[in-house]
């Protein structure tokens, strides 16, 4: 039995490595931020032991304002609902972070490792807002959707969480089984602007 484990991200089959070398131009850039650690966190934000526990474990304040996110060098926390957050950490760290959270939080809470279940697509470039407008009904004006905001919304015929990382770059949190649909959809929607794959 071989000891080499062949790890495959949800868009492994799209072969971004090869595409990156042939797609150099385009108004839209796409990158799979693959194989990161994804943890789903549930808890009562009114409970100090929960809030403090998360803060202690991650060194990050739990975002309590709806649709916001906070990040430091090691982790990003996105608000998903009043009692649900998504924590993104470096790939391979998820088990350790889960343990740390369990060790630091008391009371009622839940952590689920969902690292295999989703991936992050980073879409950027001068025309990426138009692609987003084709895909979802949310208002992408900076006034309504400032940098750092996170929204859960319908995306084409699927759904996603969208986080704005700069004026013209966004992260999409995509479920593994829908990743191919997103890939097909983004190719179609960005065709007129040119799509560039980056690594």
């Amino acid at each position: 039995m071989s000891n080499i484990v062949n790890v495959q991200s949800p868009l492994y089959h799209a072969d971004f490595e090869s595409l990156a070398s042939v797609t150099k131009e385009g108004g839209v850039s796409l990158r799979e931020a693959k194989l990161l650690g994804h943890l789903n966190l549930r808890g009562n934000s009114d409970s100090p032991e929960f809030k403090n526990g998360v803060e202690k474990a991650l060194g990050l304040t739990l975002p309590l304002t709806p649709c916001t996110s906070l990040q430091n060098d090691d982790a990003t926390i996105m608000w998903l609902s009043p009692d649900e957050w998504l924590i993104i950490v470096e790939g391979g760290q998820e088990a350790t972070v889960e343990e740390t959270l369990r060790a630091n939080i008391t009371g009622h809470f839940a952590v689920s490792d969902i690292s295999g279940g989703q991936t992050i697509l980073e879409i950027s470039g001068p025309d990426c807002i138009k692609v987003m407008q084709k895909s979802t009904g949310y208002d992408f004006h900076l006034k309504q959707f400032p940098v750092g905001k996170v929204i859960g919304t319908a995306f084409a015929k699927s759904s996603t969480y969208i986080r704005r990382t700069s004026y013209d770059s966004f992260q999409l949190v995509v479920r593994r089984s829908f990743a191919d649909y997103f890939w097909l959809w983004l190719q179609q929607s960005s065709k007129e602007y040119g799509l560039r794959i980056t690594l």
Binding site: P66, C67, S81, P82, G137, Y138, I151, G152, T153, A154, S159
Partner: peptide, 10 residues
């Protein structure tokens, strides 16, 4: 809960 307007399709 999200404290903002969203489209019906959500």
């Amino acid at each position: 809960y999200c404290e903002e307007y969203r489209e019906e399709e959500e």
